[in-house]
């Protein structure tokens, strides 16, 4: 952190390189095909610079403050001597790993709340629905989904059960919930699965998965370390659909009760 200007410049350059393809494509289509200036070009340009600088600052801060601590924590919590497994060859009891599940759920929830792309989608959903979708309600529903998903994903790594069983079972629950949900929430719910696994969540959750797969006897980080991201993208779909079903059920019940009380 002593070399801040340099680190900031590095982060800015790598962010700029990441967005370079988007800028090239946008300019190409804008100049060659649409041939019309967007109405408030200056404001858009200024806003885009803010996004770039903001994202660079965000990433450099994460890499200096949160990721090292989060990753060290994931390693320490999954280390055999912390878990207290004396005889590793005898196999492990999944209950030994309770602190890991607790950490997985807590960090999954917390990183999702901080995820900038989820903030973006929540704002857009609030505006597009005319305020019917609450930005915070959506974000909390998604975060709860990630928490449950990541914790269950850790349980899977510890027990070594096959990944497809969980994910395919989750798909069937999603399909069932889809047919119980209102048509307006389904596309947003499907989107929220992909949105959550982004800048903040992926590095921490991936470190947790790899650390766990490396320390649990009989698991290989290369084979069993994958899959947590998949859990984190399926479960939010369920919780968002569930949240909307619960919310509409509650409001229906309130409405049907009112006349009786009056």
């Amino acid at each position: 952190m002593t070399d801040f200007p340099r680190a900031f410049a590095d982060a800015l350059i790598s962010t700029a390189l990441d967005v370079a393809p988007i800028v090239v494509i946008l300019l190409l289509f804008q100049i060659v095909i649409l041939r019309k200036k967007p109405p408030n070009l200056r404001k858009i340009a200024a806003g885009s610079v803010l996004v770039l600088v903001g994202l660079a600052l965000f990433l450099i801060g994460l890499e200096n403050a949160l990721f090292p601590v989060g990753k060290t924590m994931a390693r320490q919590l999954t280390a055999p001597d912390y878990i207290g497994v004396d005889n590793l060859a005898a196999g492990v009891d999944w209950l030994d790993y309770l602190p890991v599940y607790a950490f997985a759920a807590a960090i999954g929830f917390a990183t999702t709340i901080a995820e900038p792309s989820l903030v973006a989608v929540a704002i857009k959903a609030r505006d597009a629905s005319g305020g019917a979708v609450h930005a915070w309600g959506l974000r909390i529903a998604v975060a709860v989904g990630v928490a449950v998903g990541v914790a269950l994903g850790c349980f899977r790594i510890v027990t070594g059960t096959p990944l497809p069983w969980y994910i395919i079972a989750a798909y069937f629950v999603v399909i069932l919930l889809t047919f119980r949900s209102s048509k307006t929430i389904v596309p947003l719910a499907y989107d929220s699965g992909g949105v959550t696994t982004s800048t903040v969540t992926v590095p921490v959750v991936a470190a947790l998965g790899l650390g766990l797969a490396a320390s649990v006897p009989g698991r290989s980080p290369l084979i069993d370390g994958f899959g947590l991201i998949a859990f984190a993208s399926v479960f939010p779909i369920m919780t968002v659909l569930g949240y909307s079903i619960a919310a509409s059920w509650l409001s229906r019940r309130r409405k049907s009760k009112l006349p009786k009380e009056a």
Binding site: M1, L26, P38, N40, K43, I44, A45, A46, G47, S48, V49, L50, V51, L52, V53, G54, L55, A56, L57, F58, L59, I60, G61, L62, E63, N64, A65, L66, A114, P116, V119, A120, I123, K124
Partner: peptide, 23 residues
Amino acid sequence: GLLCVIAGLTLFIQGLESGLFPL
């Protein structure tokens, strides 16, 4: 690092509403 994260997120969301969304 935390200060950077907070400042970065604030700028990002500001830029989102005035830059990326209108774009």
